[in-house]
């Protein structure tokens, strides 16, 4: 008895939605970054699962795409956290509700 592709897809959908919940419902900038990282990891699980269950996985395409996605997610995290620090220096706060200077 092995887990089917459906189980992996449902699991990564659940992980994606928990990340969406963290990104949408929290008002702290670092929580939003944590949610985005969670959604990227769920997408990586999908890449690997589709590669593993494909009929002829001669070329490990899913593995390569997942490696590049991890590298890009790391770059995104570095720039995002630098922006959090820059925003904190200006506003003395990381609450995204207080960053409303561009509001009309």
């Amino acid at each position: 008895m092995t887990p089917t592709l459906q189980l992996f897809l449902i699991l990564s959908a659940a992980l994606f939605c928990i990340g969406l919940l963290a990104a949408l419902s929290r008002r702290h900038a670092i929580f939003i970054l944590i949610g985005i990282e969670m959604m990227l990891a769920a997408a990586n699980i999908n890449f690997i699962a589709f590669w593993r269950f494909a009929p002829q996985p001669a070329q490990p395409t899913g593995v390569m795409v997942a490696i590049f996605a991890i590298a890009i997610a790391a770059a995104e995290a570095a720039v995002g956290l630098a922006m959090v620090i820059a925003v904190y220096r200006h506003f003395r706060s990381t609450n995204v509700d207080q960053l409303d200077r561009l509001k009309g």
């Binding site: 092995t2 592709l5 494909a54």
Partner: peptide, 8 residues
Amino acid sequence: LPLTPPQI
């Protein structure tokens, strides 16, 4: 959707 992974 495929149910069992192939041998690789």
